[in-house]
Design a protein around this nucleic acid. Structure first.
Length: 111
DNA sequence: TCCCTGACTGGTT
DNA sequence: AAACCAGCCAGGG
């Protein structure tokens, strides 16, 4: 059960699945949550391989540092932004307002 | 085992 | 503020 056999990808997906609606997390935060302090890039790479899971995973709640949409400029980026806005996520200067929607106390406060 | 790729990040230019 | 650069991590060939 507590299978450390679970791959890195699965762990990442598990964390992403836990991100509440209307909230977002950065690649770096997710990496830290799965136990890899500087695996932000690896997380992004993992999300790139979600494939069919895409329909069951809130991948749109994952953004770059400072609330940047890494997928910006691509079709998926547009979808991500649209979904986030649909969840009530506020954008400031083209980026997600992390102080308001950040998952971790990196910028969450004064609700 | 070495080399390359990539939904990243932080620091310099 | 935007472009550049170097560092880091997990797969795949």
């Amino acid at each position: 059960m507590s299978g450390p056999d679970e791959g890195f990808f699965e762990r990442v997906y598990a964390v992403v699945r836990r991100i509440p609606r209307g909230r977002v997390a950065t690649y770096g935060q997710i990496a830290a949550l799965v136990g890899v302090t500087r695996g932000a890039r690896a997380v992004g790479w993992a999300l790139g391989g979600i494939g069919p899971r895409k329909a069951k995973l809130p991948w749109h709640r994952v953004v770059g540092a400072r609330g940047r949409i890494s997928l910006d400029g691509r079709a998926s980026g547009l979808v991500q932004r649209k979904r986030l806005r649909a969840e009530g996520v506020r954008f400031v200067g083209g980026r997600v307002d992390m102080l308001r929607h950040g998952l971790l106390p990196k910028g969450r406060s004064r609700g």
